[in-house]
């Protein structure tokens, strides 16, 4: 292979400066993901007559996109070599507060939605602040504790009750269409674009990669590591609240035990998308494709009524496959 002397870090951030090479372009992780996605769709089409039509493909996105909003900030966090396992609990807590604000405190629904976003952001902010204040504790520890804590608070607020009876229009989030396109899909694409721009086109994004590669060095080169981390964790909380809104809308109610173990699904999708928990690597487009791979795979296999235990194995195998392939000695085919 051609000699390669550039460091991975520069290779990543200075991608635009490199001469375009078709061979390299097509040997990227994202292309493999795209192939897998096509394979999944082909597989599903061959297995179920109900899979390949517009309305089925479209409605499927409404089923699996809710948790996908968290994948973006999770990708950012993982690029910074951290992890956040409290997002599922944040979803539960923010949706519970929203429902209680609307039902018990008489807050109008619009304001309750805003409160939901604020609560989510606050949960994330608290994670972020604790993580930068206690640097000797890794993010896993902090978010493990807040994971139990946030869900605990949700239980204290609502006990075992469900809270629902939201106004009619609230159902639009989870069930509505705009010009025949699910609203959730539109918002997902919008979020993908925003996060893509943030990560790949701004200084902030470069800082995230820099921190992931070497946070000490970044600190000395003038990156405000603490601020960046706090912002990213707050974003994670915020997007968890977005998920909470869609989930509550789809279920027409909420309760403290919703979104259980969502964090693991989200981490799995981010990892499949080529985000390395070793930090510093990965691009957002990969996670977008990964979301659709996992979503359509589960949906399609559901259409032929695969037992859910088999589905567990398939998703596990897919995840392993995704992380092992780049390790097989294929030069350059690295994430």
């Amino acid at each position: 292979m051609e000699p390669k002397t550039i460091q991975p870090y520069t290779q990543r951030t200075l991608e635009a400066d490199r001469p375009f090479s078709a061979k390299q372009f097509f040997l990227q992780w994202e292309w493999l993901l795209a192939f897998i996605l096509i394979g999944v769709i082909a597989l599903n089409t061959s297995l179920s007559p109900y899979f390949l039509n517009i309305s089925s493909l479209r409605d499927a996105t409404m089923v699996f996109l809710d948790k996908a909003f968290i994948v973006f900030p999770m990708a950012l966090i993982m690029i910074m070599r951290d992890i956040d396992i409290s997002v599922g609990s944040t979803v539960a807590l923010s949706s519970v507060v929203m429902a209680v604000a609307y039902n018990s405190l008489g807050v109008p629904m619009g304001a309750a939605v805003v409160i939901c976003l604020i609560v989510g952001a606050l949960c994330g902010l608290m994670n972020g602040l604790l993580i930068v204040k206690f640097k000797e504790l890794s993010a896993v520890i902090i978010t493990l504790a807040t994971m139990i804590l946030y869900r605990g608070i949700a239980y204290i607020i609502l006990e075992d009750q469900a809270s629902g009876s939201f106004p009619e229009w609230f159902g639009f989030f989870g069930w509505g269409y705009v010009y025949g396109i699910p609203f959730i899909l539109i918002l997902f694409i919008l979020a993908a674009l925003l996060f893509g721009l943030l990560l790949h086109k701004t200084t902030f994004g470069r800082h995230i990669y820099a921190i992931g590669h070497n946070d000490v060095a970044s600190r000395f080169s003038g990156v405000n590591v603490d601020r960046t981390k706090v912002i990213v964790f707050t974003l994670a909380g915020l997007m968890a609240a977005v998920t909470a809104i869609f989930l509550a809308s789809r279920m027409g109610s909420t309760r403290p035990n919703i979104a259980n173990m969502y964090e693991l699904d989200v981490i799995a999708m981010a990892a499949l998308g080529g985000i390395s928990t070793a930090g510093g690597k990965g691009r957002l487009i990969g996670t977008v494709i990964a979301v659709f791979i996992v979503g359509y795979l589960q949906y399609g296999l559901g259409l032929i009524n695969i037992p859910s235990q088999t589905l567990l194995i398939v998703v596990g195998a897919l995840l392993l496959f995704a992380v092992i392939v780049p390790k097989l000695n294929i030069p350059r085919f690295k994430k």
Partner: peptide, 8 residues
């Protein structure tokens, strides 16, 4: 869940 499945 008695209520959460209603929309679906």
């Amino acid at each position: 869940d008695p209520d959460a499945l209603q929309p679906a």
